[in-house]
Structure formats: structure tokens, C-alpha cells
């Protein structure tokens, strides 16, 4: 039964991932007073990529072909452990916060290797930048996760979100707000959104994430795009799950509860997508060589969140 629930939960995240990307894109278009594409467009474009031929550079090795599998695999893992509908069902070894951080890093590392294995300067440049960002974002990510764990006394993603569902919103969530802001900074950096990266750019010199996948085509490109959609959805689900813990429940699960959980989940994703589209419409992208300021800010916000939690805990 537990495994059935895990599978169901993972499937919901996996199936809704392209929808989140579509929603962000459409909402951004609305902010630009455009009609924008259908929110289901990413499904069609990924399916059509699956049908296409692949062209691969002759200067690449097996690493290039392995990259999509590892990146998508790490994204699948995130989808598997993120408590989107239920908590307390994933084995405690798998949803540990530090394993979560390491799997996120594993995905980034392989994306970087893919960019390096083409012999193309664009890919190399994207890789160098992505690796730098992945390095500098780690302290903020780990401090944020550790703060949440400290506040809840649970060391798994499920336990953390579960703790927030069990307490009244006004008691549990406000102390964690600062940490959530820190986590938002991490989310924007990890998913190549504004102000770290421009997901819609066509200019190679301003790219980070896009530059690494310029050489991928067909199925592999679909896998990588899908992976980044899943990663965005998973991190968004964590943030929103803590901010609005409504609807997430522990087993035993009733059909009614399941329905509520599903509706709440999609509502939260829509809210999260709106927030991202809003952020991207009102701020500008930062210059890459100013990223240290952004990362320092993220780190200090995470530390501030920790200080707040410590004060709440010990006073």
C-alpha cells in the first residue's frame, strides 16, 4: 500500500511538471499583456521532441549520452521523495534532507559534464557558470534545510512538511518565513530563473542553463527539459508545502482526502507559478559577476532564518 502511495505521489509530480512550466510561461505572457501559449504546450513540445531524430556531435563521448539519464534520474528521485500529497510514506533513508541536497547537486554536476563534453565554447561557458552557482548555493541550501529540520525536529522532507500540517498555521509557519525566503533564493538559482539566469534568452553570452543543452536534440533534449521541469516542480512543492501545508496528509488515505490533496496540490502549484512569473516580471537579471552578492544575500537570509528559529526554540 505504501509503495502504491509513493508511486501515485511520484506520478502526480511527474505528470504535473510540464504543466508548471506552461503555467509560468503563460502567466509571464499575461504580465506582458500578451495572450501567451496554452499551458499544456510543454507536453506537446516534449512529446514531439521524443519523435524527432537525434543529432550528436562527433566530438562527444559516452559521458554526453549518459548525462540525460543521470539528470532525469536525479529529478525522478526528487519527485519520488518530495511530500506533495502525503508524508511519512517514503523510507527515512531516502527522504533525508542531506541526501536531497546531494541528489540536487548530482543532477547539476552531470548537466555540467554534458556541457563540457561537446567541444563547444557555449557549452563550456554555461558549464563553468552553472558549476560556480552550484558551488556557491550550497551553504544557503544546507543551512535552510537544516533550519527547517531544527524547527520541526524531523530530518526527512516528509517529516518537515508533516510537522507544519500538524500545527496551527500561525504558530508553525511565521518563524519559518525567513528561511522560506532563503529557500526561494536557492530555488531561483537552482532552476535557472531570474535574476540568476534568463530562461527565455536566445543570446548565448547571457545563458547559463540553456547554454549547456545547446548540443542536445531529440529525445535527450526532451529528457533534459523534462528534468528541469520536474526539479522546478519538486522544489516549488517543498516551498509551497511548508508555506501552505493544507491538504497534505499521512496514511491511511481516504478517497476524500486524496481528492482534497490533489486539488490543494494543483492550487499550490498554480500559486507558486504565479509567484515566479510575478518575480520574473518585476525584476531584472543580474550580471553574472555580481552573483556573489546574490549568493551572499541568500546565505545571510538563511542564517537569519536560523537565528530566528534558535530564538524561538530556546527562549
Amino acid at each position: 500500500m505504501t509503495y502504491l502511495l509513493i508511486t501515485f505521489q511520484a506520478l502526480v509530480v511527474l505528470l504535473s511538471a510540464p504543466l508548471v512550466v506552461g503555467m509560468v510561461r503563460t502567466l509571464k505572457a499575461r504580465f506582458q499583456n500578451r495572450q501567451g501559449p496554452s499551458i499544456f504546450l510543454p507536453y506537446v513540445s516534449m512529446l514531439s521532441l521524443l519523435r524527432k531524430e537525434m543529432t550528436i556531435t562527433k566530438h562527444s563521448s559516452w559521458v554526453f549520452r549518459m548525462v540525460p539519464f543521470v539528470v532525469l534520474g536525479s529529478a525522478f528521485f526528487l519527485a519520488l521523495v518530495v511530500p506533495s500529497l502525503f508524508f511519512g510514506i517514503v523510507p527515512s533513508s531516502l527522504d533525508n534532507i542531506f541526501l536531497f541536497g546531494a541528489v540536487v547537486a548530482l543532477g547539476s554536476v552531470f548537466l555540467v559534464l554534458g556541457g563540457m563534453d561537446t567541444g563547444s565554447t557555449f557549452g563550456n561557458m554555461g558549464s563553468s557558470r552553472e558549476m560556480t552557482l552550484a558551488t556557491l548555493v550550497e551553504p544557503a541550501l544546507y543551512v535552510s534545510l537544516a533550519t527547517l529540520a531544527l524547527a520541526t525536529g524531523a530530518w526527512g522532507m516528509g517529516g518537515i512538511v508533516g510537522h507544519f500540517t500538524s500545527l496551527p498555521w500561525l504558530v508553525a509557519v511565521p518563524p519559518a518565513i525567513v528561511t522560506l525566503i532563503g529557500l526561494l533564493f536557492v530555488l531561483l538559482a537552482e532552476n535557472a530563473r531570474y535574476p540568476v539566469d534568463n530562461p527565455a534568452t536566445h543570446l548565448e553570452l547571457t545563458m547559463v542553463h540553456e547554454a549547456m543543452i545547446l548540443e542536445y536534440s531529440g529525445t535527450y533534449l526532451a529528457m533534459l527539459e523534462y528534468a528541469s521541469a520536474i526539479k522546478l516542480t519538486a522544489l516549488l512543492a517543498v516551498c509551497m508545502g511548508i508555506l501552505i501545508p493544507f491538504g497534505i496528509s499521512a496514511p491511511p488515505v481516504t478517497f476524500f482526502g486524496l481528492g482534497i490533496a490533489l486539488i490543494a496540490f494543483f492550487g499550490k502549484l498554480a500559486l507558486g507559478a504565479f509567484a515566479i512569473a510575478f518575480i520574473e516580471s518585476v525584476i531584472v537579471k543580474m550580471r553574472f559577476y555580481r552573483m556573489q552578492e546574490y549568493m551572499m544575500l541568500a546565505f545571510f537570509i538563511a542564517l537569519l532564518g536560523l537565528a530566528v528559529e534558535l530564538i524561538v526554540l530556546y527562549h
Binding site: 531524430e53 550528436i56 562527433k58 566530438h59 539519464f69 548540443e215 531529440g218
Partner: peptide, 18 residues
Amino acid sequence: CRRSFSNRNPARITDTWD
């Protein structure tokens, strides 16, 4: 999944995009 859902033709080998 890769075997069952996607285009199974072998990849075409080209130069690096320049």
C-alpha cells in the same frame, strides 16, 4: 522508458554546432 517511448533510430553524428 527510453526504449519504449522515444524514437529508436540511431543518432546522426555531425560536427559540433559552430
